[in-house]
Amino acid sequence: MTNGIYYKKIKPDESLSDFVESFWVLHNDSENDKETVGLPDGRIDLFLIQSDDQPFRIVLLGLGTQYHDEGLIPAKSLRFAVSFKPLAVEYVFHETISDIVDKGKILSDDFWDFNLQDLNNFESFCEKASQKIRSLIPKEIDLRKKKLFDLIYNTHGSITVKDLSEKVGWSSRQINRYFNQQFGISLKSFCNILRFRASLEHIAKGKLFPELNFTDQTHFIKEIKKFSGVVPKELFKNKNDRFILLSSFKTE
Rank of each mutant, 00 (worst) to 15 (best):
Y67S: 14
R173C: 10
G42C: 12
S77M: 08
E234N: 14
K188N: 12
S15E: 15
F56D: 04
K162F: 05
I224L: 08
K147C: 09
F190C: 04
F196Y: 06
S186Y: 05
D241T: 01
I73C: 05
G206M: 03
N154P: 01
S199H: 02
D142E: 07
C191R: 11
D163M: 11
M1F: 05
K250N: 00
P86T: 02
N176G: 00
S51M: 04
R173A: 14
I159R: 11
I175L: 14
L87W: 11
G4I: 09
E223M: 13
R195D: 01
I175G: 07
R134D: 07
D33P: 05
K103W: 09
E140A: 05
D110G: 08
H94M: 09
D99S: 06
D150Q: 15
R177M: 04
L136F: 09
Y67T: 10
V20A: 05
G4D: 09
R134I: 03
N154Y: 11
Y153F: 15
R134G: 03
F47C: 06
D150E: 15
L87S: 08
N154H: 13
P138N: 03
E21C: 08
G206C: 01
F227C: 02
D118Q: 04
V230D: 02
K239A: 13
G104L: 11
V25L: 07
K188P: 01
H202T: 08
D45P: 06
F209S: 15
Y153I: 08
F114E: 05
H156M: 06
S124H: 03
I159T: 07
N32G: 03
N176W: 02
K147Q: 15
E31V: 10
R195E: 09
L46A: 12
G184W: 01
A204S: 11
G62W: 01
T215A: 10
P232V: 07
P12C: 11
I137A: 05
G71W: 02
Q174C: 04
K222L: 03
V20P: 03
C126Y: 00
S51V: 04
K132H: 15
L246N: 03
A75K: 15
A129P: 09
N32T: 09
D102T: 03
T215C: 03
K85H: 12
S98E: 07
L200D: 00
C126I: 00
I193S: 04
T251W: 10
P12M: 07
V161S: 14
G169I: 05
V20L: 06
F179I: 01
V101K: 02
I244L: 14
E90K: 15
S186E: 10
F125C: 08
N192M: 11
F196W: 07
L63K: 01
I5V: 12
L235F: 02
Y153R: 13
G64C: 02
V168A: 11
D69M: 04
F179Q: 00
D142I: 00
P232S: 05
L136K: 15
T96E: 04
E252F: 09
K233L: 12
I73H: 10
W24N: 13
